[in-house]
């Protein structure tokens, strides 16, 4: 029963995207060839996007671009996690300092990461490190906020029980607080990853010579709107894939074990 339902759901989802692509092709055709709303080269179409995909795949450029982007995103994300976890713990240890710093952190979090690009280029030049800088600045604040708020969400009872069972500070953190915050931390990291991915694209458009963001930019430079559209779709699909297959999987596993997810 359940299985047939999921298969049916998948068929519906597939059908939706087939119709969506058909609709896109139709709009393109009507706009470019019937009503003349736009020039054929100014609007991507499914067929052109597919050709562009095959072309870049054959040249091997797309795979290299994806690998480069992934590598940068991972590195930036890793740096963010390491520094962010330390800062997040610092903030929850010292609430007074934390309260002073928190508005600044949420301010920076809402700042579009492209704003960091001029600084990055000025400070690091057109190098990998400037891209990493932008990625870190774009994602670190959500790590800090996630760590801090996950400590706050631990039920006081967990701590009381541990204390009356004789836990010292080290045991309290190792056996109670860290496992307790884990699901929230994972969902925070999930958000941080998506921020890192977005920041990376801004940085690559401005300052890279290889990578998905650069492919986007070079598509624009060559007035190849289909390449731009194709790269956009690749960026979206990769974002979804990481979210679903990495973060969602870990999160669900943790929650299921705790009975917080049926």
């Amino acid at each position: 029963m359940k299985k047939t339902n999921t298969i049916r759901n998948r068929i519906w989802v597939l059908l939706f995207y087939v119709v969506l692509i058909g609709f896109w092709q139709l709009i393109y055709y009507l706009g470019a060839n019937v009503f003349g709303w736009w020039k054929p080269y100014a609007f991507p179409n499914p067929q052109g996007v597919a050709y562009s995909f095959v072309g870049l795949m054959e040249e091997g450029k797309l795979v290299i671009a994806i690998l480069y982007s992934f590598k940068r995103c991972l590195m930036g994300f890793a740096i963010s996690v390491v520094i962010g976890v330390i800062l997040g713990m610092f903030i929850s240890f010292f609430p007074k300092a934390g309260n002073a710093v928190k508005p600044l952190i949420s301010g920076i979090q809402s700042l579009p990461s492209v704003c960091w690009v001029p600084f990055a280029i000025l400070w690091f030049g057109l190098k990998e490190s400037s891209i990493l800088f932008v990625v870190v600045m774009g994602s670190i604040c959500s790590v800090i906020v996630a760590i801090d708020s996950s400590f706050k969400s631990v039920p006081p009872m967990y701590i009381k029980v541990a204390r009356t069972l004789g836990a010292d500070n080290v045991s309290l953190y190792r056996y109670v607080l860290l496992p307790a915050i884990l699901p929230m931390v994972v969902s925070g990291l999930r958000q941080a990853w998506s921020f890192a991915w977005r920041a990376l694209m801004s940085a690559e458009v401005m300052a890279a010579t290889i990578g998905l963001g650069f492919s986007l930019q070079s598509g624009r430079d060559m007035a190849d709107i289909n390449q731009v559209g194709m790269v956009m779709i690749v960026i979206i699909l990769l974002g979804i894939a990481v979210d679903k297959f990495v973060f969602s999987t870990i999160e669900n596993k943790l929650l299921r074990k705790r009975g917080m997810l049926v």
């Binding site: 009872m157 967990y158 009381k160 029980v161 204390r163 009356t164 069972l165 004789g166 109670v176 496992p179 307790a180 884990l182 943790l254 074990k257 705790r258 009975g259 917080m260």
Partner: peptide
Amino acid sequence: TGPGADRVVMFQEAALYPWL
């Protein structure tokens, strides 16, 4: 001056850790 394992408390709610 503080809680300790010489005075173990059993609370009204079970307060078990759900990850264990």
